[in-house]
Amino acid sequence: MAQAFSPQADADIEAILQRYPTRLAALIPTLWVAQREFGWLAEETMELVARRLDLPPAKVISTATFYTMFHKKPVGRYHVQVCKNISCYLRGSDEVTARAAKKLGLRPGETSADGQFTLEEVECLAACGRGPVVQVNADYHEWQTAETIEALLDRLAAGDMPGGA
């Protein structure tokens, strides 16, 4: 079945359009709505966004592919992102990544076969004084070590999302 926006998403997009003087400016906020709805931005999702905003599909694709937070393939239920930039690195983020990789059996960039976990290394998350920092979905987990990331992943695997999904 072809994708369609839920009534709630459609209302959100209508409200977004009111905030800007151009339809194009509504694109990034609308892509966020679409990603929330469908989990990632498949080609058909981008076409749906293009139709909804009455924009050429090429414009939608060109913007969507520029930004790293728009997923061009499905990501796991838990998107585990370890900051690898300088401040976190100085406090041992590589050990955090290594432990997470070992525990999950994933290399950074990979998603587990059961769709539960995606492991990724990311750039500075702007919480440098509390690093190493790991972002899981919306939530920041600060002051991470190899031990704390292991405990965190155990809790996630048990379906107990610290801080709420």
Binding site: L24, A25, P29, S62, Y67, M69
Partner: peptide, 29 residues
């Protein structure tokens, strides 16, 4: 006066003021 938040989508370069404007307008930063 209306104040709106606008979420970026992961691109350091969008902190540069003119890239930020491009991004606000819906384009690559």
């Amino acid at each position: 006066l209306e104040i709106h938040t606008h979420s970026g989508a992961g691109a350091y370069i969008c902190g540069e003021e003119t890239a930020l404007l491009e991004s606000l307008e819906g384009k690559p930063g």
